[in-house]
Structures are given as structure tokens and as C-alpha cells.
Nucleic acid binder design. Structure first.
Lengths: 163, 163
DNA sequence: ATTGAAACCTAACGTAT
DNA sequence: ATACGTTAGGTTTCAAT
């Protein structure tokens, strides 16, 4: 028996979905092209159309697939200034700090981390002035934020993922 | 005249696409749901189907839209251990370091940054053992890498973007 | 019970005018 | 913007394993 089909538990007690090889193959196809037709997916992973349809439905409704989206070139959509901002925050303020961050424009991604700082925020703005405003004005006025350190992004690229 | 329709130049000399309000509205729809039909998009942004079709075609072929993909819950797909790894590298090794990083499994995103470190890598692995292996073995054997610092991700959330 | 194969109508695609 | 032939969606049925 393989371990691949065992349901597991994640660290926070959230259930980890039961994904067989077909599910994973479907996910791989959808990662490559999120607009692939169900028909095309079905024949690529060698299952029937109805089966592919049911699997995609299951994975989207159980939260494994959280949605579909377009990937954009930040430069070309006018977000030319990106930065990672490291926040130090006071204890037990993560929830409220995250809430505030989510309301600020140009904030792309927010992570609570362990290490020399507490929160890592990816910010993508139209220009350096907007970036400066977001970091110096908006971030610093959030209750619980003790300090920030900013690392400008010069260049970036995607990794290969689980491959 | 609004500044919205002006073509611009990005920092690296890459052209910034000429996007009018309709283009932006289409992008917003596709960010919300990357599998929306062209028909649905067309009526939501109040243009004809053919027009929406042409705009999406233009934006995908000029590189503004770089693709479509599924968004996954990392926990549920079995990637329960994520971390940001900060690399210090020797001068002028960025290109080769990035090349090496792209070949390593579980590497999600790579950014060349300015500040106390040089490269920020987002890694998503199935467990702490895999994470440890990636960082301690794979990253440290890359020529040009002088040192790493790892920040485990405890929790994360998306920001609101440009909204 | 779950899957594959076929059929079905409706909706969307892609292109041409 | 409309129209047109083709393809896909979404659901149902049935046989098979």
C-alpha cells in the first residue's frame, strides 16, 4: 500500500485532502493552464470527461483548489516598484496587523513568520513614491507595528514548484 | 487628458503596456476568476464579445497577461512546511544562482533584492525534513551562495492588490 | 460504489463578414 | 455588432468492473 492515498493532518489541525495520482495530474494541468477545457484535461490524464469534471468539482468545493486566476507581468500592468517589507510587531497583534494590512492598496501577500522579524509583506506599487507612502505612512500607523525594514525587488522569477 | 492612457517605460527599459480602463476592468475580472467566459467578461465590462476577445488576445500575446493558473491551498495539496529563505551571494552571481534555484524542487518564487541580503526565496515543501534538506543541502551547494537565513511561515494571507 | 462511454441540450468559442 | 459552424459545458443514462 502506498502512502499517497492516506488522509493526513496538517500542523494547524486542518485536514489535508486525499489526493490520488489522477487528482495530482489534474492539478498539474490546471497549474500549467488554468483555462484548459475539462475535455482536454480528461484525455491528458486518461480519465473520462465526467470523472475529470467530478474531480475538479470536488477539489474546488473542498478547498484544495481555491480558485483560478490570471498571471500578470507586474511591470506591464504598471506595478513597477515591488518590495518585501519585514515588520516587527508586538506580541499577539498578528491578527489585527494582518487585518490592517489587507486593507492597504498594493499589498500583495502577507505572511506571519518566525525569525528576526515577524511579518513579511510583499508590496507592488506603480512607482517608488507610492511604495514609500505605503511603507512609511500606511504601515507605520498600524497599531502593533514596531518597525519595518524594506528590501526592494530588482528582479524576480518563478520557481519550479513541486515538480 | 488622463495619464491613464500614456505608454510608459519601466526601469529595465521594458515597455509598459498601454492599458485603458476597459483593459483594467477585464484584468480585474480575470484575477477574480480566471475561468470566466469571454461572454461573461464582455457583458460585465460593457463591451462587445468580439472586443473583449480581441483585448484578451492582445494582452496575452504582448505579455501583459502571462498565463492562467489554479490557486491551491498549500496545506491541502500536502505542502505543509513553507519558509522564506534569505540568501547572501557573491557579486555578479545572481544569474547562475537563480538558474540553480529554478532547478530545485519545492522552490516557489525567487527574487533578487536589495538590503541586508541579496536573494529571497519562497520554498513550499511537504514537511520540515524536506524543507531542511532543500535549504541545508541544495541551497548551500549552489556556487556563489555565501549563507542563508530561514524564516518559517506560520500563517499567510493574500493582500488586496491594486484595488 | 466508482468509472467509462455515450447522448443530450445549451452555452461559449473563434472567425468572418 | 451580427451571424455561423464548431467545440465545450454540464448533466443524465447505462453498462461494466
Amino acid at each position: 500500500m502506498s502512502t499517497d492515498d492516506l488522509p493526513l493532518r496538517g500542523p494547524a489541525g486542518q485536514s489535508v485532502a486525499h489526493l490520488d495520482e489522477t487528482d495530482k495530474a489534474i492539478i498539474a494541468e490546471l497549474l500549467r493552464d488554468g483555462r484548459l477545457s475539462v475535455r482536454a484535461i480528461a484525455e491528458r490524464v486518461h480519465v473520462s470527461r465526467a470523472n475529470a469534471y467530478a474531480r475538479i468539482n470536488r477539489m474546488t468545493s473542498d478547498g484544495t483548489i481555491t480558485g483560478f486566476t490570471a498571471r500578470l507581468d507586474p511591470q506591464r500592468v504598471g506595478l513597477t516598484a515591488s518590495a518585501y517589507v519585514m515588520l516587527s510587531i508586538e506580541q499577539n497583534t498578528w491578527r489585527t496587523v494582518a487585518q490592517h494590512l489587507r486593507k492597504i492598496p498594493y499589498v500583495d501577500h502577507i505572511a506571519l513568520v518566525g525569525g528576526d522579524f515577524d511579518v513579511l509583506v510583499l508590496v507592488r506599487t506603480p512607482d517608488n513614491a507610492a511604495l514609500r507612502h505605503v511603507v512609511l505612512e500606511r504601515f507605520h500607523e498600524i497599531p502593533g507595528v514596531r518597525g519595518t525594514r524594506t528590501s526592494l525587488v530588482f528582479e524576480e522569477t518563478a520557481g519550479r514548484g513541486m515538480g
